[in-house]
Design a protein around this nucleic acid. Structure first.
Lengths: 134, 134
DNA sequence: CTTATTGTCTATAAATTTTATAGACTTAGT
DNA sequence: ACTAAGTCTATAAAATTTATAGACAATAAG
């Protein structure tokens, strides 16, 4: 899978929150944005999406901000990338979570190769959590 | 990396040519297109690109067509995908052939993960040739 | 030597995705 | 009240993907 800029931002922002998590601190969007060179307005949207999926919690109003909604070791790279970018697989027809028919199915051996690659990639990303990157 | 439809078409078309290669036969674009359900006009462009890169040869005029310019076991999946889609890596900053700076470089450990994934994927695709799929 | 067949080349278009930016609104602390 | 922060929805600019169109060039067959 190709990571979008948005996924890269999401991972960096979550790791940032994971660091604050250790200090039991809440971060404002603008702080996370500045620390990681992420456009603030874009990060707002990303956090909303992460919040909708239950990875972060927000506190509104003055002195508000964001914090992780789970422990850093309970959030894997795989689920974040799937949330933001969709399939980990290289082709839709090799994807489990986002299957769709694509021309490559015409050649079974070829399809098998991309399923094997998907397996290697998922295995790796599903076993890495935010806690490994703080 | 995410494979584009175009890459899927290119692989299928090349494998088709590899089959004809065994019979020492030339294929017309329209034949390859029909056998593999590829839009003919799109396949024209793909073949032109593959020709430019030296993977296929064309014979012009009546009774013309396309054939492989190399032996099937001399063409790897990796090089075709790189030609059509660019980087195998998930992020530009983990790519050797198409390196570019991206935000993820801010976290070295994270970058290392995507370099490891790139290595696994390249290793696999560089060791598979068209001959394995005829 | 004319015609039919097939590849060549370049432009363009439609759709989708990516990468944001804008601004009005809501909530909560002081 | 006022200010600081998150919320929500719309929109836009750019890039990429996925083709389609059509005029042109080369070659074989009759």
């Amino acid at each position: 899978m190709r990571l979008s800029r948005k996924s890269e931002y999401a991972l960096l922002a979550l790791i940032d929150l994971a660091r604050q998590h250790e200090k039991n601190e809440v971060s404002k969007i603008v702080e996370v944005a500045e620390r990681n060179d992420i456009p603030k307005k874009y990060l707002e949207q990303i956090f909303l999406q992460l919040k909708g999926a239950g990875y972060v919690r927000s506190i509104r109003g003055a002195q508000g901000g964001y914090e992780l909604a789970k422990k850093p070791d309970e959030i894997t790279l795989a689920e974040i990338i799937r949330l933001i970018d969709g399939p980990l697989a290289s082709v839709g027809s090799a994807s489990l979570y986002y299957f769709e028919h694509t021309p490559i199915e015409k050649n079974e051996k070829l399809l098998r190769v991309f399923k094997e690659i998907r397996d290697m990639v998922s295995e790796k990303l599903e076993n890495l959590t935010l806690s490994q990157f703080v």
